[in-house]
Amino acid sequence: MFGDIEKLFQVFDHSTTLIMNESNKTYLEALAETGENLFEGQVLQNLSKNTIEKLMNEYEKINLEQIPNETIRKAFQLAILKGMKEAVQPNHEMTPDAVCLFMSYLVDKFTHDKQMFRLLDPACGTGNLLTAILNNSKKKIQAYGIEFDETLIKLAYIGANLQKHEIELFRQDALQPLFVEDVDLIVSDLPVGYYPNDVVASEYELKSSEGHSFIHYLYIEKSLRHLKEGGYLIAMIPNFMFDGETAKNLHEYIKKNAVIIGLLQLPLSLFKNHKHAKSIFILRKRGENVQPPKQALLAELPSFSKKDAMKGMVRMIENWFRDNLS
């Protein structure tokens, strides 16, 4: 399988470089264009005859119809990661692949009683986490993604097309009013830092009393507002989220509006800088018949590459589901 991923990545990479060299675009912009060409089966840009020929030679090396979705996602992800090395802001880093797959597993466990559900990622970036979940679920999922960055949402759109997923994507600031009805599940790798728009932040209970508000606090409030009663939020949060004086307000807000289901600390080895380390935080929106679990799911996850340790962890999680959510 890795050979197929590598082969498809080479096609993405070579064709992207061809477009980039002739059209003075960034790697990520050119990658979106080559993805669109692949999907449409023709070169859509106004390029020289020589470049068009070279592009068509690249595209003819593969047949997307015969390539599994996960191979397409992973190859596209590798190309995006290459492009992001050029110039990337810290909050644009892609969710590690092992985490995407683990979160897909959690989604499956928390929706075990549903054949169909509505899913939202309010900070979907390139759509990698969303498509990983869609690829690894046998259920009917109505999926929505929100992203403010124009290049990232274009890549999300292209990635969804290449994998033949119907995802409704909105280019907007997710903390402003959304045109999405309440959903059953929100899954997101939350942006971290300060939110610059104090006017919008003033509409939130978790706004800061002075200066800019924490964007990760506001996203938690926004998510809980957009969940149906009893819906779940599975979010990647910074490990320092509950540190400091301001965390008191966050604790109070969560206590009032949700029940804490679990907190799973991700292995530090996933993060170049341990200051940027994250955990998976799971909340359930309060509602009729919503009871807290007998015991919250609390664990420190081992390195995903340690197979035996991971098997033991999954057994522990399976037992927790059996005892708390059956």
Rank of each mutant, 00 (worst) to 15 (best):
P122W: 02
F242D: 01
A143V: 02
F304C: 10
R315Q: 14
Q163E: 15
P96C: 14
G312W: 06
T246R: 13
N319I: 08
V88W: 00
K248L: 14
N289E: 04
R286N: 14
T51V: 06
N324V: 02
A98L: 12
N324I: 00
L44A: 10
P292W: 07
E147N: 05
D121P: 06
N91S: 06
K114G: 00
L152Y: 11
G35V: 00
E22V: 05
M94I: 15
L298T: 02
E86W: 05
D108E: 11
F76C: 08
T34Y: 03
S48L: 06
E58Y: 02
L81H: 00
Y204T: 01
H276Q: 07
N161V: 01
G125Q: 06
P191G: 08
D149W: 07
S209Q: 12
N63Y: 14
P302L: 09
I282D: 06
I186C: 04
I167V: 09
L298G: 02
H165L: 07
M94A: 13
G244E: 09
G83Y: 06
T17E: 13
K285D: 13
F9M: 08
Q142G: 01
L169I: 03
K138C: 04
V88P: 00
F12N: 07
E33K: 14
N249K: 15
H251W: 09
L134E: 01
M56P: 02
D308C: 02
H212C: 10
S269C: 11
P196D: 08
Y219P: 01
I280R: 11
P177M: 05
I133L: 07
I167R: 01
R225K: 14
Q142K: 15
L47Q: 05
K255F: 09
D97G: 06
